[in-house]
Design a protein around this nucleic acid. Structure first.
Lengths: 359, 359
DNA sequence: AAGTGCCGAGACAACGTTGTCTGGGAGTAG
DNA sequence: CTACTCCCAGACAACGTTGTCTCGGCACTT
């Protein structure tokens, strides 16, 4: 039951390749060959080895194997996400895992929480573990440190946001196009006073979505009221509070375009609290679970995080296997999903309305 | 730019401890001491070493270190979840990561998808990587294979569901109590014909929630109509379809108790489609994002997956650090959150009503 | 029948690091 | 001034595995 007190040197109860060799009556190296599926081994010996492995519950030590092998593969990749528990990140994670699974590769994950220092710490931790590759949603605006970290021998793929200071494959959603489409959609439904609410400006996707909004407004010949642009929202409460402010103003917007999940949800909460959810139009960037069950159901620009993860993983494995063609940029299309909130007509509200609202 | 073609033996551009030693003018072992924070090193030499490390971008190889160290720690733990992308799993994941982070430990994750074979495959993969410990939401009903896999030297903690065939710490939600409370709550609101809809019967938590439902019914002296017990629902569409069937029956239930997230959402969809969401009461086991924004907001028995992950990780690290007290069972309380759907009064519907409903 | 070639198995070294042991230098006490 | 102690740095081996080389034996060729 407890660990076997063998008088021999071995400290742990775990069998080593040598033990298997002795049990099977062959040499250490022959066991290695069987474990690695080398075909030239005599089938009789191979069978003996397999029986000994079974009997001793031998499990190869990948660490030792990696150390000695010439390719230095650990069979492990690293995945740095904004937060493993948010729906976008975890959908991406799952897609990466599925690609890894087909190759017998395991995935180390970490949450960055938009913290550049944490990004570097985790990159270092993964370097020390000699991950075969890294997929990262960058939190900082400079990834040149990865050159030192990985010495050019570990492929990197950027997802969701471009990296800087390191040429690498990049998988991006069509943020500008998607945001333009959302804004155009609101304009097409008659809206003129449209507010944009976005995430931290230092996040590239937030800037791109903002850009798309501006593009569509300019294209339609509409002037953008700068007070209707609210950047740097990162939490539900922050968004909720800002939307409340916006809607209490003298000239409130008739439509909202929210640049991120949590902002969208904050906006929904604010609209609900003010009883304006059937009055003020809303389109959110990035889909979220149950968006279709809200009232009205929330129109969104859906991203495809699973596709992004899959493409990123495929790109990474292709690099790991030696592809050294120039870095590619993969665009994953977004999709406008009409559900109701984005199709509400503009209703210009008077000061009296707003007074009534707020009672 | 490309890898340096040193005429020396080293194949990769990465510096080894030996290179640092040469650059710093000290012995290999002194570098090792500095890297490991051994205090007895002359501060002057230590500084030289640190400078050399910086200059060469040296990163220790944890694999090689693990191989040689007497404690054999990899600084990596494994986490086996049902599916990294579902909200319960990913909240748990995040909590485990946060505990690991404070200890400089990294987390390997895998999704089991309720597949026993996958559970064994991943356990084996993690054994081969010599994870320091394993936190697992078991998918199979027998974990005795882990004894062979880990040879007793790798601690295991079960979360969300008990394991079998292996004594180990276990972190569980109070499923029976929570389900009893939910059912009692419906009974207290006057319901008599209450349906239970649950996940696969082979999942322990599904059995426990079912049990809690039966307990509360018996306690109230109510007979349970066996046709109102619907087990083995695992997806939203399956749940939706079954709920539709139930509500079209001659004597439909006036309240639903759903034993799992996806089943709850399926039920919400069905109720919406039938226009019965304000008529038939609903309580779901396990909270989910936006439950409070639906109409009516969904009353739930909330679990605390973050707490479960935190306690599980703490237990695991305590074992890794040598705690060999008898295995403990940790109960994480559930909480009834009243939001509206669970407080609807019973409305007995006639056949005419149902006919009208279905039009 | 002898020489050649080939193939499969084992001996040995090495991967990058740390545990252990040794030696030398400095400091202290007699 | 000598002898003893203490402490720090380095030499060496070892962790579990795989790459390389060698050797023995068998089959085939001439």
């Amino acid at each position: 039951m407890s660990s076997e007190p063998t008088s021999e040197a071995g400290r742990t109860g775990r069998a080593r390749m040598n033990d298997v060799a002795r049990a099977a009556g062959v040499s250490l190296k022959t066991v290695s060959r069987v474990v690695n599926g080398v075909q030239s081994v005599n089938p009789v010996l191979a069978e003996q080895v397999r029986e000994a492995i079974e009997a001793l519950n031998y499990r190869p030590d990948i660490g030792a194997s990696t150390l000695r092998r010439s390719d230095r593969r650990t069979g492990t990749i690293a995945l740095l996400l904004e937060d493993v528990s948010n729906p976008f990140s975890s959908a991406l994670h799952r897609a990466v895992e599925d690609e890894a699974r087909t190759r017998g590769v395991q995935v180390l994950t970490g949450s960055l929480d938009e913290d550049p220092q944490r990004e570097r710490e985790l990159a270092r931790a993964f370097t020390m573990r000699r991950a075969d590759g890294l997929i990262i949603v960058p939190a900082s605006d400079d990834q040149s440190y990865l050159v030192d970290e990985f010495q050019g021998d570990t492929p990197v793929v950027f997802v969701d946001r471009p990296g800087h200071g390191l040429p690498a494959d990049t998988v991006l959603a069509t943020n500008v196009i998607g945001a333009t489409e959302a804004t155009r959609h609101l304009i097409d439904h008659g809206h003129r006073r449209i507010a944009y609410l976005g995430d931290y400006t230092r996040i590239a996707t937030a800037r791109q979505r903002h850009q798309g909004f501006l593009d569509a407004m300019r294209e339609a010949g509409l002037e953008t009221d700068p007070t209707l642009i609210v950047p740097d929202l990162h939490t539900i409460p922050a968004a909720e509070s800002k939307v409340m402010d916006l809607l209490h103003r003298a000239e409130p917007p008739t439509a909202l375009f929210t640049g991120q999940n949590l902002v969208t949800i904050g906006a929904v909460r604010a609209l609900r609290r003010l009883g304006l959810h059937r009055t003020v139009a809303l389109i959110g960037f990035d889909d979220f679970p149950l968006a279709d069950l809200l009232e009205p159901a929330v129109t969104v620009i859906a991203q495809d995080p699973a596709m992004m993860g899959r493409i990123a993983a495929q790109a990474l494995f292709s690099r790991i296997e030696g592809d050294d063609s120039p870095p590619r940029r993969h665009w994953i299309p977004t999709e406008l999903i009409r559900r109701g909130s984005g199709e509400l007509p503009p209703r210009l509200r008077t000061a009296d309305d707003r007074l009534a609202d707020s009672l």
